[in-house]
Write a protein that binds this DNA or RNA. Structure first.
Lengths: 362, 362
DNA sequence: GGAATGATGGGATACGGTTTCCGCACCGAT
DNA sequence: ATCGGTGCGGAAACCGTATCCCATCATTCC
């Protein structure tokens, strides 16, 4: 009698408690609950009643240990506060929930140490995949580091997914979900050029950030295509935040005040830029045009509403999860297929009210 | 020899693989890794070398089953996209990480079914706590539903934390972390009243949302305190989004155009309101003043910068996690203490540039 | 009517660690 | 030289669930 814990103990009820109280075997309870085995109606009722009485829930840890268990994906992000992140997360979480999967979230705060620690933590958790979000710094180490992550996760039966980051070179077991970053910048810059702008202040972001590099490259290509000389003196690097947008414009107004448009690397940067222009007594877009990138809700809430590049963040999240799920279904059949492990989603310009032909010094 | 899986198998390495390869017992490996038992230097080196060679990580599920395991908290939210949420989540996640805890995230999408399903899912996961975020709908059922959650989680050794929701009545095992919602609204409305505004358009939010009710109540109290009649005709309910702010102001300009200020229930609503005013040819704040609530980054990025009520979202997240951690440390010593299970954080008005004395129809 | 067949339920074992209990070896002391 | 103590490593018992394998019983077919 004192062999096991008494049924009415402090902690949570176990499957054994249920079995005992229902007068059936542990196996039967498990079958009733997972429902993947024929069970008589009588048994089902008996068990379910006790389950309700005891308010029993299965122990997820034990369940995954024994083989079953709900798949879990981990989302790792630098800063959970960014709007773009929120939408990717929404896409991932939504798609995960749809399949009964769980999502874990971790923030790295731009710290490689923490990134490593988190990846290991997730490996311990036996997650189906680790989804790494956001642009990466283009240090030489990046490729090696990610390749190590990818192999390590792969060896543990998990998988690495890079969202909005550059793909990995070589034969690395990772999936990349990307958007046409450079193409969007190209289109956006073209939009300004075709409106007649020639002197454009460019605020692409941090010079080492891959996202910023792509956006800058796209802009340069557009200038080339239009045969307009690109002035490196009109490029100012800095973080993707409001203050940088403000300060960069403020400084530019002193040093190179002949620009007629601002090509911001982010909607938030554009917001800062607009504010700085206004503080200097300039009107947007009558005196200076401003465009952003990302198309977060803020873009349509500014005055004037911001012309920007739409990035399908939420869909990227969904696609990332689908890729993981597919690969898991597909099993070992279609492994090593280079197809399907680098997905690129399109971007497009959303025209609103922040662009006009140059009028100030035109 | 074929008794177990071969050491170099497909799946992840087990502790047994490590033990075998290091020529020691399983127990020794466990001790080296958890470090809570004296181990000779020689043994430690031997084990750690193999651990690195095999890139071994312990199985978190097995670990928690056996007693150890990293505590996990679950954050449940209606809509992951809201900026306020992001900051609470940041607070929770940051504090969790600081202690080596993990955070799960789930979204309910305002669906009670999903909320129930998620709470049960989290119960299965054996989370240390479930943190429920955001205002709740004041249906009669709310109290019962939450009380059931609280007891159910408590019985499973977990705990319910309500953040930004009304506290539970009676002796329910739950913790509430709240902010002085009504007080903030009172202060904000007072700010407008003392600037001379008498006809104020109030957009508190959905009528059934507890958050909205508190904000409306605070405004009303301020009017009473100033001896100014409060006109219910100037109150318009609706969701906390940009469009509602826009449409409510648009409609009010037709029906009751004599208001000189807008008291929005949210910064985002305020943004919509400002846009609508501008579209109608009115200047902010010269013709109409606008104030918000929440103090999300958007508030300082609008033009003009928004006067609003600061809510310490991130700190609320930290406080919520600390409450859970404390209770877990404290153990059974200080249970049932009514103190500590309802924490209220202060709010205050942040004055920016969106308020002026009434000038239009003075 | 007996045997083959299918539908169910029970017992035992595996999953991957942690932890308690033991025993062994080595140390100094008498 | 023997004894007692101490420090460290090993064997085994769990943690809670899923599942494989077998026993049982009712059903149906020959």
């Amino acid at each position: 009698m004192s062999q096991r814990k008494a049924t009415s103990d402090a902690g949570r009820a176990t499957i054994r408690d249920v079995a005992e109280r229902a007068g059936v075997s542990v196996a039967s309870v498990s079958r009733v609950l997972s429902g993947n085995y024929p069970v008589s109606e009588e048994l089902r009722r008996r068990v379910m009643k006790v389950v309700r009485d005891l308010d029993y829930v299965t122990n997820a840890h034990a369940r995954s240990l024994a083989g079953g268990g709900t798949p879990t994906v981990a989302i790792l992000i630098n800063n959970i506060t960014g709007a773009a992140f929120a939408h990717v997360a929404k896409g991932v979480e939504g798609a995960a929930t749809l399949r009964g999967w769980l999502s874990l979230v971790g923030t790295t705060g731009d710290d490689p140490e923490r990134e490593l620690a988190l990846v290991n933590l997730m490996r311990q958790q036996g997650v189906a995949a680790v989804i790494l979000l956001g642009g990466a710094y283009d240090y030489d180490e990046y490729q090696l580091r990610m390749a190590r992550f990818a192999r390590s996760l792969d060896a543990a039966g998990s998988h690495l997914v890079l969202v909005g980051r550059p793909p990995l070179e070589g034969d690395v077991p990772a999936t990349t979900v990307d958007y046409d970053n450079e193409g969007g910048a190209y289109a956006m810059a073209s939009h300004l050029l075709s409106a007649g702008h020639r002197r454009v202040l460019v605020l692409p972001g941090h010079a080492e950030l891959t996202t910023a590099q792509g956006r800058l490259r796209g802009a340069q290509r557009a200038f080339e295509a239009y045969g307009v000389p690109f002035d490196p003196g009109l490029v100012r690097h800095g973080p993707y935040d409001y203050d940088h947008g403000y300060e960069a414009v403020e400084a530019a107004l002193h040093e190179t005040p002949d620009f007629t448009a601002v090509l911001a690397g982010t909607d938030v940067v554009a917001a800062g830029a607009m504010q700085a222009l206004r503080a200097a007594g300039l009107r947007v877009p009558e005196d200076v045009s401003v465009v952003g990138y990302d198309d977060i809700p803020l873009a349509s809430q500014l005055t004037p509403q911001l012309t920007t590049v739409h990035v399908p963040y939420e869909e990227m999240g969904r696609v990332a999860l689908r890729a993981v799920a597919d690969r898991r279904e597909g099993g070992a059949g279609r492994r090593k297929g280079a197809d399907g492990d680098h997905l690129i989603l399109g971007t497009h310009v959303v025209v609103r009210n922040s662009v006009q032909p140059p009028g100030r010094r035109g």
